[in-house]
Nucleic acid binder design. Structure first.
Lengths: 170, 170
DNA sequence: GCAACCGATTGCAAAACGCAATCAGTTTGA
DNA sequence: TCAAACTGATTGCGTTTTGCAATCGGTTGC
């Protein structure tokens, strides 16, 4: 891993980690989309990432300590990627980024409903979401079961918008 | 201005705006360093931005609506760059980014003290800072004068660390 | 057996980057 | 008065990164 840095400024160092056009997209798809496999990330990406870029970024994110990789017991060739705590704590940043983008950029309604719900949920929802991610990716015990998962809530919001748009368009 | 987007996802659109290694650095220097001129940004950058990259990014950030440019009355050739509201509202993102970087990345003490103070100040401090930036860059009336400015507070913290390190090293 | 799928890798053209030198106009100061 | 320093850039050029398509060897399901 490269240890050469432009400066010790936290904002600069953060940019050195995900100051490119793809790293955060991959993490977004893992966090909000629940993607864990190479093909899921490759084919599920609405932005259309190329396979060599995806391979390169996965490797880089592993070297940086944001991801880990493990064998999938169901398939000898399959690898399963997991978020580390370092990546999971990006949730508040993702939430702010989504909120800012919703205000200032030409977002589409169906792709920004998740950001809107996450913004409205506030820090309490982010904490719950991070706990769920820790359970999924790090194997920590599930906390307070019974309530619907954040990802399911966001997904339901997304599907409601898609359904509504389909019905009004028909 | 380019209107071609990879997707309408707010996180993706945000990345299209500052998903590179320099745009946020420039905004950081304007927000926290109070830099307003080309040369200030060029020579003051600890990361060492090249002049062609700086020129390109300033142009791009203007096209995106993050910056405006005006003549400096004191010098016919001098241009003064101002943050727009769009850029000023990045303050909470900068704060979170700095907080995240402080936890996970090899930050230097003197360059992360500002991030620490901003994190501890919380949303109230961010709001005050954004108001000060609006006053500086947009000419809005100053709100609640009398308290020390956030930038001065952060700068004082930085200088205290530098002074302490100089004295212990001596 | 064979098609579909697995995580990549390779080749290649285009774009972006990093660096140094340079530009024309403006201001400063001796 | 006139040169030096400073203003916001621009140019040229070699290196690196990106984007895209094709392909790879191995695995699995039918």
């Amino acid at each position: 891993m490269k240890t050469e840095h432009r400066s010790g400024c936290p904002i600069n160092l953060s940019l050195e980690v995900f100051g490119d056009r793809w790293s955060l997209i991959i993490l977004r798809d893992m966090i909000f989309g629940g993607k864990r496999h190479f093909r899921e990330l490759l084919n599920g990406s609405i932005e259309g990432i190329a396979s060599n870029i995806l391979a390169d970024r996965l490797k880089r994110l592993m070297e940086l300590g944001m991801l880990t990789k493990a064998d999938d017991p169901s398939h000898k060739q399959k690898a399963i990627y997991s978020l580390t705590e370092m990546a999971i704590t990006l949730v508040p940043i993702m939430a702010h980024l989504g909120a800012w983008g919703r205000v200032w950029l030409p977002v589409s309604e169906e792709l920004s409903i998740r950001a809107e719900l996450l913004e409205k949920g506030g820090p309490a929802m982010w904490e719950q979401f991070m706990d769920e991610l820790r359970h999924e990716h790090l194997g920590t015990p599930a906390t307070v079961p019974g309530r619907p998962s954040v990802r399911a809530t966001l997904q339901a919001g997304y599907e409601a918008v898609v359904a509504r748009k389909a019905s009004t368009a028909a």
